[in-house]
Computed example of a mutant assay.
Amino acid sequence: MRTPRPTPTAACTLSAALSAALLLGGCTALGRQSTDGGAQPPGVTAENAAQSTVTTPWGPLGPADRLLITDVRRAVLWEIPLGREAARRAARPATRRALTEIARRDARLDDLTRETAARVNVALPDQPTADQHAWTSEITGKSGTEYDKTAVARLRTAQGLLYARIAAVRASTRNTLVRQFARQCATVVDGHLALLEGTGFVTGDTLPDPPAVTGAPAPGAGNRPPSPAPAATSLVS
Rank of each mutant, 00 (worst) to 15 (best):
A86L: 05
Y147N: 00
A212Y: 12
V188L: 11
L22N: 12
I69K: 02
T176G: 01
V122L: 06
D190S: 12
A182W: 03
T100G: 15
T214S: 03
L30R: 14
A16R: 10
G144T: 07
T145V: 14
L196M: 08
R119G: 06
P125H: 09
V54P: 02
T206H: 01
A130H: 11
D111P: 05
A98S: 15
A64R: 12
S19M: 03
R74C: 01
P219A: 04
A17K: 08
W58I: 01
R96V: 08
V178K: 01
A153I: 12
G222M: 07
C27K: 11
A167S: 08
T140R: 03
F181R: 01
V54K: 07
A90M: 12
A50M: 09
A218E: 14
D71E: 13
D110E: 15
V236D: 00
K142D: 07
V54M: 00
E197A: 15
G25D: 15
T70K: 10
H133N: 05
L82R: 04
T136S: 08
L18I: 15
E138Y: 13
P81A: 14
G191Q: 10
P6I: 10
P217D: 00
L177P: 08
S19C: 06
V44N: 02
A232R: 09
R170H: 14
R89S: 10
P230Q: 04
T3Y: 05
W135P: 00
A64I: 11
T116H: 09
S52H: 06
R74E: 10
T203N: 06
D111A: 06
W135Y: 15
Q51D: 14
P57N: 01
A168W: 00
N175V: 03
T35L: 09
P219C: 04
R104D: 12
L207Q: 14
A64P: 00
P219W: 01
S227I: 05
A171H: 08
N48Y: 07
A130F: 09
V120S: 06
A232Y: 09
N223R: 12
R179Y: 05
V169W: 05
A168C: 01
G200E: 04
T116Y: 06
D205T: 05
G215D: 03
I166S: 08
R88M: 05
D36W: 01
Q51H: 14
G25H: 14
E138T: 14
R104Y: 07
L23T: 02
Y147K: 03
Q51P: 02
T214C: 03
T187N: 07
S15Q: 13
H192F: 10
E47N: 04
A168E: 02
S137G: 13
S34H: 04
T145Y: 04
M1L: 13
R154K: 09
P230F: 06
L207G: 07
A39Y: 05
F201V: 03
R2N: 10
E115I: 02
P81Y: 15
E85Y: 12
V76N: 13
R92Y: 05
T9F: 07
D148Q: 09
D110Q: 15
P210C: 08
P230K: 00
L24W: 02
A98N: 10
T150F: 13
